[in-house]
Design a protein around this nucleic acid. Structure first.
Length: 476
RNA sequence: CGGGGUGUAGCGCAGAUGGUAGCGCGCGACGUUCGGGACGUUGAGGCCGCAGGUUCAAAUCCUGUCACUCCGACCA
């Protein structure tokens, strides 16, 4: 117990000071370190492995929808950004610009991509001549830079890694379907890989992406009740097609502008993962994306057969496709237990002389901290345990989230709801003034528009006929 | 850009009224340990953010400056 206290002291209290807990945990578990340039982060191997797993899972899903990966340049001529009026406005304050290269001042400044719509649309314009060239379905994994005023590792950094998908279609309908398909891919990924239940839906005009006709987002609830936008999918209509002259000759022989979409998720997902599942002991990472799924701790390493059996177990698990490691470091088992719990490894297996003698091994789940005795080398049991952890983490998060969605019919009720760490569903007339009033008085913003019908309801702010039911929450 | 705070060892900090720098953790070596953060012995590690000034003497007092950080306005 005394030792527990000591451990708890090491990371900030999750309930008392959530933001501090967050930064403590990501630094102490060696996910990230701060970069020398303000607002940048170094993603360390343990953190990067999560990103690699995210990439792997998303790529599988993208490929199923026919999307292929490609790569476009980091630097974009400044004039490209000027072509789409709203888009320029949206990004103007936060672009970083390169003015000199090769020891000389450049004729035209180059911007470091804050997103790649412009350069990609410019290329697409060259590639699309006939309707037979459409749709173009391309994704790129890359870094982007947005010079933000305040930053926080993973959630908002000056430079971040993401994937951005960009598609062009011959018809409005097809592009709209694509927008929804990708939103669905994200939802499936968030729930089944990250074990984070998400709300998906259309964004209000105030919250939409600069240059889009419609923006759809997925919102996840963090442990402190705040919402995190975990992914977006935009229907861009012909806005970019017209700005970049993306025309094609249709079946009917006429020249038409294409309809485009873009969608993306970023390293912010790692932040979401941490803030959705962590506890007082540190991280809890769902098995699908965990860098290490099973950590094997040999007990009494110096005794005959312990290390050999631990290594053999590791080998059989790895052969079965499980990411397992043996911790052979010269430290006490107790120290290692705490270390790996903090790092969020889903399953820990202890192997000691007693176990070997009895043909057993002790397994512990990180999410519930429950221990179970398994037969030594029982790969199927470990696999089943990992699957259970994955599934129950989602169920637990979903129950928690669902119990924290409340209904409100006035600004006071909205305030009470968000103060109570809840998402608030409220009817809204659709006007910007009411939306802004809610933000002023409650610091909550419209996250997504719900599917529910607003028939017979009145706006929580102005009392006029409600057009939409909207989820409000304080957001990161 | 407004308000507050902090800069001393890798990290967290202590250093009244000036006298030449210390504690905890961590790190190295050796030994005993190992089923929930072990212990003993011993060692390494500092331009006290930076630049001026006052003084016989500055981590300490004064002035300036830089950096970081928290809270408000903007953002994935």
């Amino acid at each position: 117990m005394a030792q527990d206290k000591k451990f708890v002291k090491e990371i900030a209290d999750i309930n008392e000071d959530f933001p501090k807990w967050y930064t403590d945990v990501i630094l102490k578990t060696e996910l990230v370190d701060y970069g020398p340039v303000k607002g940048t982060m170094v993603i360390r191997p343990y953190g990067y492995a999560i990103w690699e797993n995210i990439q792997k899972e998303l790529d599988v899903r993208f490929k199923k929808t026919g999307v292929k990966n490609a790569y476009f340049p980091l630097l974009i001529p400044q004039s490209y950004l000027m072509k789409e009026a709203e888009h320029v406005e949206g990004f103007a304050p936060e672009v970083a610009t390169v003015t000199h290269a090769g020891g000389q001042k450049l004729q035209e400044p180059l911007v470091i991509r804050p997103t790649s719509e412009t350069i990609i649309c410019d290329m697409y314009a060259k590639w699309m001549e006939s309707y037979r060239d459409l749709p173009i379905l391309i994704n790129q994994w890359c870094n982007v830079m947005r010079w933000e005023k305040t930053t926080r590792p993973f959630l908002r950094t000056s430079e971040f890694l993401w994937q951005e998908g960009h598609t062009v279609h011959a018809t409005e309908e097809e592009a709209e379907v694509e927008t929804q398909t990708m939103l669905g891919v994200y939802k499936d990924f968030a729930e089944n890989c990250l074990a984070i239940p998400v709300l998906t839906g259309r964004k209000t005009d105030k919250e939409k992406f600069a240059g889009a006709v419609a923006t759809y987002g997925m919102e996840a609830m963090m442990l402190d009740g705040k919402s995190l936008q975990a992914g977006t999918s935009h229907y861009l209509g012909q806005n970019f097609a017209k700005a970049f002259d993306m025309k094609f000759l249709d079946k009917d022989g006429t020249l038409k502008y294409g309809y485009s979409t873009s969608w993306g998720v970023s390293t912010r997902l790692i932040g979401a993962l941490i803030m959705a599942h962590g506890d007082q002991r540190g991280l809890v990472i769902p098995p699908v994306v965990a860098p290490i799924q099973v950590i094997i701790i040999p007990v009494c390493m110096h005794k005959d057969g312990v290390l050999e059996n631990a290594q053999k177990l590791c080998d059989v698990l790895c052969d079965a496709g499980i990411r397992a490691e043996v911790d052979k470091r010269d430290a006490t088992p107790g120290w290692k237990f705490n270390e790996w719990e903090m790092k969020g490894v889903p399953v820990r297996i202890e192997v000691g002389p007693r176990d070997i003698e009895n043909g057993k091994m002790m397994a512990m789940r990180r999410d519930t901290l429950e221990k179970a005795e398994l037969s030594l080398f029982d790969v199927d049991a470990v696999k089943a345990l990992l699957a259970t952890v994955q599934q129950e983490m989602l169920e637990k998060s979903r129950e928690r989230r669902d119990s924290r969605i409340v209904w409100a019919e006035s600004v006071e009720q909205i305030l009470a709801g968000v103060d109570n760490k809840c998402f608030v569903k409220a009817p809204w007339c659709g006007c910007r003034e009411c939306e802004e009033k809610i933000k002023e008085q409650t610091q909550a913003t419209a996250r997504v528009i719900a599917e529910d019908s607003a028939d017979g309801k009145v706006c929580a702010v102005c009392g006029k006929k409600a057009e939409k039911i909207v989820y409000f929450a304080r957001a990161y």
